[in-house]
Write a protein that binds this DNA or RNA. Structure first.
Length: 503
RNA sequence: CGGGGUGUAGCGCAGGGGGAGCGCGCUUGGUUCGGGACCAAGAGGUCGGAGGUUCAAAUCCUCUCACCCCGACCA
């Protein structure tokens, strides 16, 4: 199949149990979150999708500011020479960098179209940033002289490019949007505290805003960011039991300071390399949101992520009936607007039934139906997106004057229910395993998180990945200390890890 | 980079040497409207591109381009 999308409606959504991967694509395209662009591996984020990103940006940005960070913007282009300064770091990205070699086009001499002007070759080639560590650290070298300049706490909202072999809408695209924080500190302890502070910001954001329960922990040596001393992460479970890394925070130690020769003078007059962190989340979170909550009818948005939290569907035959409904809503619009965001769908070109399905597809958390019969009784029908038709609580009759209080409560209930549901799903799909054979036997028919004592080497991890497809997603905090025996080597260990197949 | 698939109307597809079609959507008019309405009349295409075979190519041959999906690799 080629480009999907268009005006098909949710009738065309592939059920999850039939083809999870196709279901995901259907949600993205039919809910008009994204569309394929002319460039392979690149996507267009449509208004419905971008609205979600804007919600994420707003919430996260406020949290970054509240923890003392400021925004800045660094250039898209990085001189090629910068990338050779940090060999370990380069290793991770060199194979997927886009390179700018020329700066001008011209008409082809033979009139066949536009060609690259061979005389406009760049002296030094430019890399399109796959991440901004190098360009940022080249500036930090100029800006940091003294311990008084520290800590330096910057974040940037930007696009980056990684030339991936295999792409997937939102989850892995050639170009994507993200935020990248880059901080510099006077001590290792400060950098460590910063990395953990941000990890906690990410956890709170995921759980409180995205209604996405996450495991918080540390990456193993083989899974950590090349160039980091260690990497922390939040990991979420999708509805197919696969893990998705939803955010990372790195303690970079002095690696980048040494690569870019960034030193500062201490209080006692000595000179020391600065300590660093970096951290980021991307538009991938939109993919996480979709795969955590949505169903076979379409997108399901947590209320705090919904641009339109409630849609009002008027039921009417005659214009006079519509007018009466509009007046009833109009009288209360200001107070409603203060309590929740809503939109009236008063199109007279489609039937109410079509609107119901349409707004469900788009993920709107609450639907308020108002018809002549309701109006006569001074009530409305409030319908929850998170419950199936016929389920207890799906539909409620609410007096119009109580909508202002009822809807916000319902939104809170939905937000909480989505989280609880996702957490219950994760719990039900998390398995304690004592032996490697046990995991091997179960992982195919029961995808999920496998919790095991493990102290194997990077080679052991590679072998497990080759044999089962599973990797160590994280070493969760608060799950350590207990003694056990490694499920592979049989050695005594207190390290408990989560194995899972991952996106 | 391997494997698979697809390029024909906005979307989904059929057609396989001689009139470019169907469904949905779109436009206009009318009847409808509490779970994806109906009738009628319309608009809309260099059949991905190039070359070849032929009296004649969407269709056969050669080459090419592009995108999608699955895998390896990676956020």
């Amino acid at each position: 199949m080629q480009h999907t999308g268009g005006n098909m409606g949710s009738e065309g959504i592939t059920p999850r149990d039939e083809d999870y991967s196709q279901w995901y694509i259907d949600i993205c395209t039919k809910a008009e979150l994204a569309d394929y662009s002319a460039v392979k591996g690149c996507m267009v984020i449509r208004p419905n999708g971008y609205a979600i990103w804007e919600k994420m940006q707003r919430a996260l940005d406020d949290m970054f500011k509240a923890t003392g960070h400021r925004n800045a913007y660094f250039p898209l282009f990085v001189p090629k020479s910068f990338l050779s300064r940090e060999a370990e770091h380069v290793e991770g990205f060199a194979k997927e960098c886009a390179v700018v070699t020329h700066y001008r086009l011209m008409n082809a001499p033979d009139g066949s179209g536009i060609v690259v002007d061979p005389s406009a070759k760049l002296e030094e080639e430019l890399i399109v940033r796959p991440t901004s560590e190098t360009i940022i650290w080249s500036m930090y070298k100029k800006w940091i002289q003294s311990y008084r300049d520290l800590p330096l706490l910057l974040n940037q909202w930007a696009n980056v490019v990684r030339w991936e072999m295999r792409t997937r809408l939102f989850l892995r695209t050639t170009e994507f949007l993200w935020q990248e924080g880059h901080t510099a500190h006077a001590s290792s302890e400060d950098a460590e505290a910063e990395a953990l502070r941000i990890l906690e910001v990410y956890r709170r954001f995921a759980e409180e805003w995205l209604a996405l329960p996450v495991l918080v922990g540390r990456k193993t040596e083989s899974e950590k960011f090349a160039g980091a001393q260690h990497t922390y992460c939040i990991e979420a479970m999708m509805q197919d039991g696969k893990a998705l890394q939803a955010g990372t925070s790195h303690h970079l130690g002095q690696n980048f300071a040494k690569a870019f020769d960034v030193t500062f003078q201490t209080e006692t007059g000595t000179r020391e390399y600065v300590y660093a962190t970096s951290w980021g989340v991307s538009t991938r979170l939109i993919g996480a949101l979709i795969m955590a909550h949505s169903d076979d009818h379409g997108l399901v948005l947590p209320p705090r992520m919904a641009d339109i939290q409630a849609v009002i569907v008027p039921i009417f035959k005659k214009q006079a009936e519509l007018q009466a409904i509009q007046e009833a809503v109009g009288r209360r619009a200001d107070s409603w607007r203060d309590a929740f965001s809503f939109q009236m769908d008063d199109r007279d070109t489609v039937t109410p039934g079509f609107k119901f399905a349409d707004w469900e597809l788009k993920g709107t958390p609450v639907r308020i139906e108002i018809g002549p019969r309701d109006l006569a009784k001074g009530q409305a029908v409030v319908v929850r997106r998170d419950l199936e038709r016929g389920q207890e609580g799906h539909k409620t009759f609410v007096p119009l004057d109580e909508i202002v209080a009822h809807v916000p409560r319902t939104l809170d209930t939905i937000q909480r229910n989505l989280f609880d549901r996702a957490l219950a799903f994760r719990t039900a799909h998390t398995y304690d395993v004592d032996t490697y054979d046990e995991m091997k036997a179960r992982i195919e028919e029961a995808p999920g998180f496998f919790r095991a004592f493990f102290d194997g080497s990077a080679e052991d991890e590679a072998r497990i990945k080759a044999e089962t497809g599973a990797t160590v997603r994280c070493i969760p905090f608060g799950d350590q200390g207990e003694r056990g025996t490694c499920f592979l080597t049989g050695r005594a260990t207190n390290q408990r890890v989560i194995f899972a197949k991952a996106y």
